[in-house]
C-alpha cells in the first residue's frame, strides 16, 4: 500500500513538475556510447531523475536547438558549433569536458597494407573521409594537410558512423575517424595511430540550453566530475 502511494506520488509529481525530473541531453554522435553510460550512472546517483538522450551530428543538433527543440544540455564535438549557439544566445557559457584525437581506421587484417597517412595518396586504394561539412571531415582534412598528403577520397561520408560501416564491411581500405570510434567499433576495425605531430586534438564543450535548473546543472557537473571523466576515459576520450 505504501509502495503504491509512493509510486502515485512520484507519478503525480512527474506530471505536475513538467520536465523538472527529466534532463534532456543533446550530444554529438561520437559521444553516443560514453554518454549512454554517463546517463545511466547519473540516473543511478539521482533516483527519480531521467536522462533523455538525443544523439546526432553536432550541426544537426545545433539546427534542432535553434528551431526550439526541448534540450536542457548540449554536448558538441567541436567548439565552432557551440559558438554558433552562444552567438544566438541559445546556451549558457560552455565548458570543455573531453578531448579526442584522430586515427586511421582500416578493416581487420589491413589487406591493403596501409601504414600511415602517406597511403591516403595511393590511387589503388578505396579511401573514405567524412564530408568537410561535419567536424570529423574538417579534422580529417587538417590531419592530411599537416602530413602534406594530397588525398583523393572515393567517398565523403555524411557522418563518422557511415564511414565506419563501410570500413568495417571491407568496402573501403582506410578512413580517418576519431580514436574513440575505433575503441567503440570492435573487431572489424583496426587502428593505425597518427603521430602527435600530424594529429589534431579536438575539444568537446558542454553547455546548458536556456535557463538552468538544479538537475541540469547537476548533470553537467557529473560529466565534468570524477565519475563522468572515468567513463569518458574508458571510451577513449582524453582529459579536457
Amino acid at each position: 500500500m505504501v509502495v503504491i502511494a509512493a509510486a502515485a506520488t512520484v507519478a503525480l509529481s512527474a506530471c505536475g513538475g513538467g520536465d523538472a525530473d527529466t534532463v534532456s541531453v543533446f550530444a554529438a554522435a561520437s559521444l553516443t556510447d560514453a554518454f549512454d553510460d554517463i546517463a545511466d550512472a547519473f540516473e543511478e546517483e539521482h533516483p527519480g531523475v531521467l536522462v533523455d538522450r538525443n544523439f546526432a551530428g553536432s550541426s544537426s543538433l545545433r539546427e534542432q536547438i535553434l528551431q526550439g527543440a526541448p534540450a536542457d544540455v548540449f554536448a558538441s564535438a567541436n567548439r565552432s558549433t557551440m559558438d554558433d549557439l552562444v552567438a544566438a544566445d541559445a546556451v549558457g557559457s560552455p565548458e570543455d569536458f573531453a578531448t579526442n584525437r584522430m586515427a586511421i581506421a582500416v578493416p581487420a587484417g589491413n589487406s591493403a597494407e596501409v601504414r600511415d597517412l602517406e597511403d591516403f595518396a595511393r590511387s589503388d586504394l578505396l579511401i573514405g573521409l567524412c564530408a568537410v561539412e561535419v567536424p570529423c571531415g574538417e579534422f580529417g582534412r587538417r590531419v592530411l594537410s599537416l602530413a602534406s598528403v594530397d588525398a583523393a577520397p572515393d567517398t565523403e561520408e555524411p557522418d563518422v558512423r557511415a564511414l565506419l560501416t563501410k570500413i568495417d564491411a571491407g568496402e573501403l581500405d582506410a578512413g580517418i575517424v576519431y580514436v574513440t570510434d575505433v575503441v567503440a567499433a570492435g573487431d572489424g576495425i583496426e587502428e593505425i595511430t597518427i603521430p602527435d605531430l600530424q594529429n589534431v586534438v579536438t575539444s568537446y564543450p558542454i553547455a546548458v540550453v536556456g535557463a538552468p535548473d538544479s538537475d541540469t546543472a547537476a548533470f553537467v557537473d557529473f560529466v565534468r566530475g570524477s565519475r563522468g571523466q572515468a567513463i569518458l576515459r574508458d571510451h577513449g576520450f582524453g582529459a579536457p
Binding site: A131, P153, D154, T155, E156, E157, A162, T165, K166
Partner: peptide, 9 residues
C-alpha cells in the same frame, strides 16, 4: 544511396 554508393561530388 549514401550507405551503398557513398557521397562524392
Amino acid at each position: 544511396t549514401v550507405t551503398f554508393a557513398g557521397n562524392l561530388q
